[in-house]
Amino acid sequence: MTGYPDVAQKYHISSVPKTVVGETHEFVGAGPESMLLKHVQDAAADPAGTAPASGLIV
């Protein structure tokens, strides 16, 4: 996180671990598998949330 201050700032990373799904769905700390799935489903359903810059999203 400290290695990439621009990315940390973009996603408002103030504590870790933090998971960001798509661009706007996020949670801090560890969570159950069902919670991650819910975020992935929400991000997939949110057209503004995924917006790939180009082809392969990685």
Binding site: A8, T19, V20, V21, I57
Partner: peptide, 13 residues
């Protein structure tokens, strides 16, 4: 069931 690519990023130190 999800057809849209979804980007998952995990931040750590």
């Amino acid at each position: 069931a999800i057809t849209t690519p979804v980007h998952v990023q995990v931040f750590s130190t």
